[in-house]
């Protein structure tokens, strides 16, 4: 798992993406100007707080934000030279499921409850790869077998509700990998999978990556998955990236207080049972009413006065990480206990 050189021409380059939603509480700034690139053959991890904008970011790239109430208010996303955000829906639909595939966080929203799994799986390959019905079916069964569905040749004729949560998730993974996309966006793809099958699926993704040079954006809360699969990691908080680092350094030398808090919240297998877990104190930020200055400040054990007025941007740290924080966490003292706002 070595660091990739940043000189590869990126497959996808996202620049200043901003997405808003209109709600009763006001305008929700779900994604607030994020930028990143990913090269062929690379795996970029996106981790971050629940509700911080990870799914919305990727739905925006795929043109799947419901408008209204949502709106992509700014940004560019160059994919193989074309701007995904400026494309017509028809052009984007052609790319989706073919050159870019997405594994959605919620399997049931992307599987049609009224069609058998066979019908749904064959549709993609018939459409994008020009398979015949028979070829498509054989291929679909083979894919289901590879994701560990027993008796796939028979189960494929079942409906989604007859599958377990993890089996549905695997159906989606099989569908997404079917077309050998150039870019795979995986939004919490293994949340419903036990560790043995998860290991098998991650292995499969890595193999696809080795063979086809697939780029993978991996959104996950599972830091074990991040450690296993990702080359680089971006940490998201309140609609922004607050830290970017190669995977080893993110775990060994985190530089943003939120990343630190995240790593400290992990339950450890070697830990004693039934003692309390550490959670980051305070409540998640209100994206309709972000405070001035740093969005993490109200919960940050390192915060100083300046944090309330200055909004930090990503800057290079002494170890090469990029972090959006005014403070040097390696030398600054922690305030003993931050209060709930």
């Amino acid at each position: 798992m070595n660091e990739r050189s940043g000189t590869d021409r990126p497959l996808l380059a996202v620049e200043n993406l901003q997405v808003q939603f209109r709600t009763d509480e006001g305008i929700v700034q779900a994604v607030d100007g994020i930028s990143f690139t990913i090269a062929a053959g690379e795996t970029l991890g996106i981790v971050g707080e629940s509700g911080s904008g990870k799914s919305v970011t990727n739905l925006a790239l795929m043109g799947l934000i419901p408008q209204p109430p949502g709106k992509v208010v700014a940004g560019q996303a160059r994919f193989q030279g074309e701007d995904l955000l400026g494309m017509s829906p028809a052009a984007l639909a052609k790319i989706r499921g073919n050159r870019i595939a997405m594994i959605f966080q919620d399997p049931m929203t992307s599987l049609n409850p009224f069609l058998t799994v066979a019908q749904q799986m064959t549709e993609v390959t018939e459409l994008h790869l020009g398979f015949s019905r028979r070829q498509a079916l054989d291929h679909a069964v083979a894919m289901l077998e590879r994701v560990g569905i027993a008796d796939a040749g028979r189960r494929i004729f079942g409906y989604p509700h007859e599958f377990s949560g993890g089996m549905r998730q695997r159906v989606m993974i099989a569908m997404a990998l079917s077309c050998k996309p150039d870019l795979l966006i995986a939004d919490e793809p293994t949340t419903a999978l036990d560790v043995t099958i998860q290991a098998q699926i991650l292995e499969m993704m890595q193999q696809l990556q080795r063979e086809e040079g697939t780029a993978i954006i991996m959104i996950t809360h599972d830091l074990g998955v991040v450690a296993k699969l990702c080359h680089r990691v971006n940490v998201m908080y309140a609609g922004r990236f607050v830290e970017k680092a190669p995977v080893e350094r993110l775990f060994a030398q985190p530089r943003h207080p939120y990343t630190l808090g995240l790593l400290e919240s992990l339950p450890r297998l070697d830990g004693q049972g039934s003692n309390r877990l550490t959670a980051i104190s305070g409540s998640p930020p209100d994206l309709a009413q972000l405070p001035d200055g740093c969005a993490f400040r109200p919960r940050c054990p390192y915060a100083i006065e300046r944090c309330a007025s200055e909004t930090p941007t990503l800057v290079d740290q002494e170890n090469g990480n990029r972090a959006a924080c005014l403070i040097d966490v390696t030398t600054s003292p922690r305030v003993a206990e931050t209060k709930r706002p």
Binding site: S50, A192, H221, L262, S265, L266, R276, L277, A279
Partner: peptide
């Protein structure tokens, strides 16, 4: 807690 980040997961488990 499968869809929660580790911090919120810790909060819910606590």
């Amino acid at each position: 807690v499968s869809a929660l980040d580790v911090s919120i997961q810790a909060q819910v488990i606590n």
